[in-house]
Amino acid sequence: MTLRQNVQFCSAFPNDADYDLDVQPGRNIAEALKAALSRRGYRVSEPINGGDHGWELDVWRGRKRLWLQISVLAADECYLMTENMTFWLWPDMDLFRSFLRDLQSVLAEDNKFCVTGWFSNGASVSATELADAPFTPEAAPGSRRG
């Protein structure tokens, strides 16, 4: 099963960068995601300035932590990259998959986002066929623990 934990999307959010201070755009996107994920029961940090990367959010379900990064290259090319930060010896893959499904819903429900496609870690976006979903339906949450 291929897990695609990153997504390319376009955004209708205004550019909120401060180039004089080297602050990348995307804080407004991080705020919107924080609000949407909080409504789904996650505890979400304030947006964290990730320097050249853009903006980051720490996301918790209980004591388990997940992470996402928002990079805005242009309105038509933004990236959300996620990582499962649960204990590396026994990573909670159910939680991670559930989080990716929630993220997929959040992006689909807000018309300021337009998802181009999902891709795996290490994949070249231009050389990979982007997928419609973070994983195939048969690998939905609860089907297997990785």
């Binding site: 550019n15 960068a17 180039y19 990348q24 755009p25 050249d52 990367h53 853009g54 990064q69 990079s71 805005v72 290259l73 242009a74 090319e77 990236y79 990259m81 870690n121 290490g122 070249s124 976006v125 231009s126």
Partner: peptide
């Protein structure tokens, strides 16, 4: 340099223009 050494860095915005390492 950052693009080459950091798997999670794809690029950013430079004065409103796209900076994409892969491109």
């Amino acid at each position: 340099l950052h693009y080459k050494v950091d798997p999670s860095y794809k690029g950013g915005s430079v004065k409103g223009e796209k900076w994409n390492g892969e491109a």
